[in-house]
Amino acid sequence: MLVIVDMQARLLPHLNDAAGVTERAGTLLRAATLLDVPVVCTEQNPQRLGATVDALRDDLRTAKVIEKHTFDATFAPAFADALPPAPATLWVAGAEAHVCVLLTMLGLLRLGYRVECVADAVASRRAEDRAVALERAKQDGARLTTVETAVFGWLGSFTHPRFRDVLALIK
């Protein structure tokens, strides 16, 4: 399952490399859709921070979008209910790396999930906060990965019937 955390309209303009992170999150979402990887997307207090950015909205057609008011999404009952049984692997991307992304990954690890932090698809306002969050996630048991590694891992082989479609997303 792919977990997209809080890629919201009023938050993203303040993040370091917001355009790049949004583009890479979009690649993840489109690949997940093509490969039937389930997606859950959180929105932190959307009344104040807005909905998920328009650039990702079309790619959320098959995703479960969950409103939350906790920084760790695992404390939101709707989020917890949307998860597969542990110890499934969950790929996590989104914002902010050092708050909702990190706390959600720590919660998922606490619940017994294998967590893959898609490092090139997470952002914070300050690069230092992102760097510390990635280090903390790694120290606590999350594995760091990239969009391309995740996508090619989902494919498994160039013989996959959707290989060319997914490759077009990367190029």
Rank of each mutant, 00 (worst) to 15 (best):
N45L: 13
I4L: 14
A127I: 05
G26P: 06
V40C: 13
A19K: 05
G153T: 11
G153E: 07
P87D: 07
K138V: 04
V122I: 02
A127C: 08
D81V: 05
P87A: 03
Y113F: 00
K68A: 00
E148K: 15
I66Y: 01
E148W: 12
G156N: 08
L108M: 02
T22K: 06
V3A: 15
T145I: 09
T62E: 13
P13N: 04
L111E: 13
T22P: 09
M105K: 10
R143T: 15
S124F: 00
A32M: 03
V115S: 00
A51C: 10
D54T: 15
Q44N: 03
P84C: 13
L134Q: 01
V37S: 05
D58Y: 10
V132I: 14
A119N: 06
P84T: 11
T22G: 12
E96P: 00
A55R: 04
F158K: 13
D129T: 03
V132R: 06
L102M: 03
L167F: 11
L15C: 02
T146N: 10
T146H: 08
L155K: 11
T74L: 08
T146C: 09
L90P: 15
G26K: 07
T145Y: 15
Q47A: 15
A80C: 05
A18G: 06
L28M: 13
A150W: 05
Q139M: 10
Y113M: 02
A76Q: 14
R110N: 06
L35H: 07
R114D: 10
D120M: 12
A131G: 07
H98Q: 00
D129A: 03
L169P: 00
A127E: 09
L49P: 02
P85H: 15
R30F: 06
K138N: 11
G156K: 06
F71C: 07
A63T: 01
L29S: 07
A25R: 11
K64F: 10
K68Q: 00
V118D: 13
W154H: 05
F71D: 00
L102E: 02
T149H: 13
T104R: 04
V37W: 05
P13R: 03
R162C: 14
E23L: 15
W91H: 14
A95M: 03
L108P: 01
P13M: 07
S124R: 00
E128D: 05
A82I: 09
A80P: 01
R164L: 09
L11V: 04
G141C: 02
D36G: 10
V3T: 09
R162N: 14
K64E: 10
A31N: 05
Y113D: 01
K171V: 08
V3I: 15
T89G: 12
V92P: 14
R57P: 10
T89C: 15
A51V: 14
K138I: 04
K64D: 11
M1I: 14
T149C: 12
A18F: 06
L103E: 03
Q44A: 01
L35N: 01
T70K: 08
G50A: 02
N16A: 11
R125S: 02
D17N: 09
F79C: 02
S124H: 00
V101T: 01
E67V: 01
N16Q: 12
P161R: 08
A86D: 07
P46M: 03
T149Q: 15
C100L: 01
V65W: 02
L29N: 07
F163H: 09
A51G: 07
E148I: 04
I4S: 15
Q47W: 14
C41Q: 14
V118H: 13
